[in-house]
Amino acid sequence: MVAAVFHMPLEASAPPAASPTSSPIAKAMTASQARPAAAPPAPKKPAIDLRGFWMAVLPPVLGLAVLVLVWQAIASTSNSGIPKPAETWAQAVQVFSDPFYRNGPNDQGVGWNVLASLQRVAIGFGMAALVGIPAGFAIGRSVFLSRMFNPLISLLRPVSPLAWLPIGLLVFKGANPAAIWTIFICSIWPMVINTAVGVQRVPQDYMNVARVLNLSEWKIFTKILFPAVLPYLLTGVRLAVGTAWLVIVAAEMLTGGVGIGFWVWDEWNNLNVSSIIIAIFVIGIVGLLLEFALIKLASLFTYEEVKA
């Protein structure tokens, strides 16, 4: 049986079907695929925050300008005796041209005087930290010790540090140990009080867990108390250093020797008021640097923002 295939004349004469790529839409799609992808736009450089810059720089500059203008106005009045800013600046250039000269035990540059004061502060403050911080932990941990020493602290803390200077002169028979003793007695109270308050504010749940786990006193101190009390402790250290630097100037003015306080008193005896104003700025700058260093130290050990 033979099968015959018949083709219509129209089918034979019809043109071949257009390929998918021959249509306009397909050509456009093909061209778009062949074209390389456009590169992503380059990130824009952040604009300079001029407002933040001026808000950070302009207020301090204006504050210093106001200080200089008030100083100039007071110095310009008759019979004030206060040197003008330009005169003080000229004296400062002369003083800091050679800050480490030595012409005898009582005639030394401002650099040696500052270093001598910092040495006394470091010794007195270090002794206060060795005594005050452990005492604060003990007072904070023990209710009996807290009730025993709180009245004594409340009685002795308001006493002016310079009132302790004659006691130091009587006991130690020397000006330098007496100044260190004054630094010690005025630095110990902030560290004792802040450390004890920090221990007392440790959540009771922490201590309950320590009792359940039967932790030793050393483990409680190293794992619970010390990390929790550290922000309070560093606050006490900052207050103590500021008080120590404040007191050493007054103590050296009374005891003499080498130190920034003695330098101020010696310049007063020489009626050199420009040097006294320079010493005031030096004392303020050194105190500011100490405060800034302790703020940076505190920020390394606490997650909270440390403010001046």
Rank of each mutant, 00 (worst) to 15 (best):
M1Q: 01
V5G: 00
P9K: 12
L10D: 13
L10T: 14
A12C: 02
A12Q: 12
A14F: 01
P15A: 14
P16M: 07
P20D: 07
K27D: 09
A34G: 10
P36W: 04
A39R: 09
P41V: 07
A42Y: 00
K44D: 05
P46T: 10
P46M: 01
A47K: 10
D49K: 10
R51G: 11
G63N: 12
A65D: 05
A65K: 03
W71Y: 04
A73T: 13
I74H: 06
T77G: 15
S78F: 10
N79V: 08
N79I: 07
P83V: 06
W89T: 10
A92M: 15
G104R: 04
G104L: 06
P105R: 04
P105F: 11
N106V: 11
A116Q: 05
S117C: 12
R120V: 05
R120T: 09
V121F: 09
G124Q: 07
M127N: 00
A129C: 11
G132Y: 03
G136H: 00
G136Q: 00
A138S: 05
I139R: 02
I139Q: 02
V143S: 15
F149D: 00
I153E: 04
L165G: 03
I167W: 08
L170G: 14
F172L: 09
K173Y: 08
G174Y: 03
P177T: 10
F184T: 05
I185F: 10
I188R: 02
W189Q: 03
P190N: 04
M191Y: 01
M191H: 02
V192F: 00
I193P: 00
N194E: 06
N194C: 02
A196E: 07
Y206F: 15
N208F: 09
A210F: 04
L213M: 15
N214F: 04
I220W: 08
T222H: 11
L225R: 07
P231Y: 07
Y232G: 04
Y232N: 14
Y232P: 03
L233N: 02
L233P: 01
V237F: 08
W245I: 08
L246Q: 10
V249T: 11
A251T: 08
V258N: 06
I260F: 06
W263I: 05
E267T: 14
W268T: 13
N269H: 11
N269I: 05
N270M: 14
L271K: 08
I276N: 07
I283T: 14
G284F: 01
V286W: 06
A293F: 15
L294E: 10
K296A: 13
A298C: 02
S299R: 14
T302L: 09
E304V: 04
E305C: 00
A308H: 08
